[in-house]
Design a protein around this nucleic acid. Structure first.
Length: 319
DNA sequence: ATGGTTTTTACTGCGTC
DNA sequence: GACGCGGTAAAAACCAT
């Protein structure tokens, strides 16, 4: 209960009016009469510090999502056979409700544009789930697609490839390392991945050109190194050394035009050898998706490129 | 379509266990 | 002999023009 100072009691002129929010009444604490009833509760939904209680007492979720075409704020007509007070609904009303529900579902996606949006967003949801991408990435993907709609003519473009290109961009924005091919494999498992990747790459280029490079940040080498290190379960100190060497050699031009995966794999391999933790070239190359030859070539470049003051094992020094 | 660059494939030999 | 590594040449893939 709160004491209100702005109003006086019409009976005793007392200024100590209190509101009983539970019953929606305004009461005079002097004479006890109800000054006003059915008053609106303008206060916070709940003062509980417990999240669970807050959720229970909340009037609405207060959350919208870009990953649904209607932002997730649609009205659903439930299939319950009881009304709000628990009384059973009679047969005639029930039929009417079924009819309403059917039409409500139809008008939710009314225009072809909305239908396409719903379709693409559903595909994005499925893909992010199968690729184990976080909700954050899905939301970013959805938002990028919505922004895209005005800039690029998505009509007639492959839903699968647009989805892949958008998720790829969202991953970059969220600092998640996923190659376009990985994403395409998640959408169309099995054959056809190559051609889909190619088309998705074309769409991605168009997107970057239209939306500007700020929307598509370039992933730094440390992200690639960490990803390979995590997948190969490399020791932390090896990863740390790899990151350190990468930092020292970042100014040299060894990474120009080379695949970042190969360079990251080489950094890790060099580090493991230096620390006496012999990771096999075969293992690190298969995780990085490059061949052993590529790793060897990158190793050579790393070791010869810079003034790295490192002592090499005789066998390594040869290269 | 073309030419340059990078990566892959396939093969080889060497050293170590 | 098996294994891991390093080297090489040719082919394939990629990319900018």
């Amino acid at each position: 209960m709160n004491i209100l100072q702005t109003q006086n009691c019409p009976e005793c002129r007392s200024s100590s009016l209190v509101d009983d929010m539970q019953n929606g009444e305004l009461i005079c604490s002097g004479c006890g009469i109800v000054v006003d009833d059915q008053i609106a509760d303008c206060g916070p939904e709940t003062i509980s510090s417990n999240l669970e209680d807050k959720m229970k007492l909340a009037r609405a979720t207060g959350q919208t999502t870009y990953s649904q075409h209607d932002l997730g704020i649609t009205t659903e007509i439930s299939i319950s056979s009881k009304d709000f007070s628990g009384k059973t609904i009679n047969h005639e009303v029930k039929n009417q409700m079924n009819h309403l529900r059917k039409w409500q579902q139809r008008v939710r996606v009314s225009t072809p544009k909305e239908r396409r949006l719903a379709n693409v967003l559903a595909k994005m949801g499925e893909t992010c789930e199968s690729l184990n991408l976080s909700k954050n990435v899905l939301e970013t993907t959805s938002m990028i697609y919505r922004n895209l709609d005005g800039h690029i003519d998505v009509k007639g473009k492959s839903v699968v490839c647009i989805t892949a290109a958008t998720i790829y961009m969202a991953c970059k924005q969220c600092d998640v390392v996923r190659s376009l091919e990985e994403i395409c494999r998640g959408i169309v498992p099995g054959k056809d991945v190559k051609s889909k990747t190619k088309l998705a790459a074309r769409y991605y280029r168009t997107m970057v050109m239209e939306m500007g490079s700020l929307k598509a940040p370039v992933l730094t080498m440390d992200k690639y190194i960490s990803k390979i290190a995590n997948t190969t379960q490399t020791e932390v100190r090896v990863e740390r050394l790899a990151l350190e060497i990468a930092e020292k050699t970042k100014d040299s031009s060894i990474s120009d035009g080379k695949s970042p995966n190969g360079i990251a794999a080489a950094y890790l391999y060099v580090s493991s050898v230096l620390l006496g933790q012999n990771i096999l070239q075969r293992d690190v190359s298969s995780v990085a998706g490059v061949t052993e030859v590529t790793i060897r070539n990158r190793c050579k470049e790393i070791l010869t490129s810079h003034k790295l003051k490192i002592t090499l094992r005789p066998s390594l020094a040869k290269c």
